[in-house]
Amino acid sequence: MSDDQIQLKRKAKGPRPLYFNDPDIDRLLAMLMGLVGEVCVIRDRLDTLERLADKHNLISQQEIEDFVPSEEVLQERATLRDTLLGEVTRVVSGDIEDLQNLQLMTYENAIKQVEGDH
């Protein structure tokens, strides 16, 4: 986006209706659907690439369908997926890590400790 591009109003005037008991869920749902939309944009782009590659005789669509990953490739893909899932679910495992940490002090105590450290 260039700096001199005109910025359109992006929010319609009028309060946004809330549907769930916690307004954060309304926001999360909108973010989730935004993400699904972007995944579909990537999927469409990939589809374009495959079709162009096919058209120009680089890789045929059939070749993609017929591709059988070796065990080595399967392993690499599993690692990539696991990393991705770990990043997405970081907050969940972080909570458990905190529960397991017996030395963990409350944040208030951490403030008191550094402030009283003279």
Binding site: Q5, I6, Q7, L8, R10, A12, R16, P17, Y19, F20, D26, L29, A30, M33, G34, G37
Partner: peptide, 20 residues
């Protein structure tokens, strides 16, 4: 309702981007 409202907002947004 939440999905339909969201789709409406995404619709305007997607139509705005090329215009912007």
């Amino acid at each position: 309702s939440a999905l339909l409202r969201t789709s409406q907002e995404m619709m305007w947004s997607s139509a705005q981007l090329p215009v912007q």
